[in-house]
Design a protein around this nucleic acid. Sequence first.
DNA 1: GGCTGATTGATATATGTCAATCTTCTGATT
DNA 2: AATCAGAAGATTGACATATATCAATCAGCC
Lengths: 255, 255
Amino acid sequence: MADDIHLKGVDFNCLHCEKQHNDCEKTLDCCCKNCFNDGSTNLLKSLDYKELDFLVDGKQQIIYKPGETIIKQNTSSTYVVCIRKGLAKVYVEGVKGKSLVVRLIGQHDFVTGGDLFNGNVQKFTISAVTEVHCCLISASKLSQLFSENNRFAVELLRHHTKQNNDLLNKLVVLTQKYMPGRVADTLLYLKNHVFCVNPFSVPLTRQDLADMSNMTKESLVRILQQFKSSGLIKTQGSTFEILDENGLQEISRNG
Amino acid sequence: MADDIHLKGVDFNCLHCEKQHNDCEKTLDCCCKNCFNDGSTNLLKSLDYKELDFLVDGKQQIIYKPGETIIKQNTSSTYVVCIRKGLAKVYVEGVKGKSLVVRLIGQHDFVTGGDLFNGNVQKFTISAVTEVHCCLISASKLSQLFSENNRFAVELLRHHTKQNNDLLNKLVVLTQKYMPGRVADTLLYLKNHVFCVNPFSVPLTRQDLADMSNMTKESLVRILQQFKSSGLIKTQGSTFEILDENGLQEISRNG
DNA sequence: GGCTGATTGATATATGTCAATCTTCTGATT
DNA sequence: AATCAGAAGATTGACATATATCAATCAGCC
């Protein structure tokens, strides 16, 4: 989720805000061109400035309050969402009222999938955990770029492929590991892929963490207590500290 | 998996076999141009003959015996596989020796995903259930087509999006439904998406069916017995007949 | 006839459910 | 700013149950 980007070309004033481009690049906070940077795929790098301008022209910048729904499962949407600020959860509303949190998205994450090119409905819900500033970009603009720049199409396919692989992995983790292994995976995911610092503060409820690990909140709490008394982690309210990452990885491996 | 296709253009002799094009189209058995027909996305239809020729030129046609591995998880591969004949299973080799069958592929199915554009390794294994005739096509050819034909890139993205949605659905089914619901889903999948006839013969072991439903073979057998005595299905060895599809769907819904 | 796979049964266990208590946060009131 | 009340979330415990495991028998098939 956090990755430095290198814009090609010379310095210029950002067309979408009053700052200098250098400021935009530094803060990664305002200029929407920075939205198209995904830690793993970096969709941005295959587009030049002209193409970026085309893409971000007419985008909508929206602010959501904690708890608000950004995209609702089973409604159709032809937007690509990219997060400028804040944390949101992507989850599937399953059977018997249960939810399954598939991933967390934060600054510069990019969400396609669901509908987009399918004409069907979204297969997941995205809702704001903290206040979220994000941009909505029309999907049709993406496809228009494909013929001009086939590297961009390949990047987008890469992005989808990665999501696919992540889902396959989640499928195995959630169905074949015991609870301690699943909680260990969730904790390692939070530390290494979402917050990227060690004592980290999680703006999620235990229920959310349980929905990420496919178990009840009671079970999650019990496993956390076990980890605490084994000296693997330290928790204080919503603050978590990983004390023994190797230990957690061991537990993750053994399922 | 079964879908009629309509090739555009006038009749012609197939360039890749000795038959007339009309025969190829009818039997869907020989001409590799028919490989690029996926029941749901129909990748073929966005390509013209020149582009198809480019794509299938230099493809490899291979035959695999039952049980043979076509693509092995954790090895890299830059091929797209399309099945000309036979049945294969796509599965993930998970933890503690467990396998999870993600989907079955048959005639005219198209498998991307895994590596392809990622430079990484495949995240799943494909192995032949019956004798499989398939074509391997170099992935780099696909990306070369993107700039000439952006509809093709969109179709490929659709294909990926559909796979993504299927995986999300499988995630919910396997984690949130009880065993009867999961077995019902597996049976309905076999009848409606794989074999498409009612009394159907399944060349899979009970272990395979259990791996599709995320349970042990013993549990699977027990559920099947329950379904039999409830009059929902009839089984005789590897032959299954769905007697009460609505009943199965009801069980699927209630988890 | 022996091997592989299918079925059935008895038992163990991981995990969920339900209920009670405890903690933390929030927001209104003074 | 301090206090308090209420609510929402977190934790703990006792119990229920879905599902796996292990072992034995049965059936089909080169």
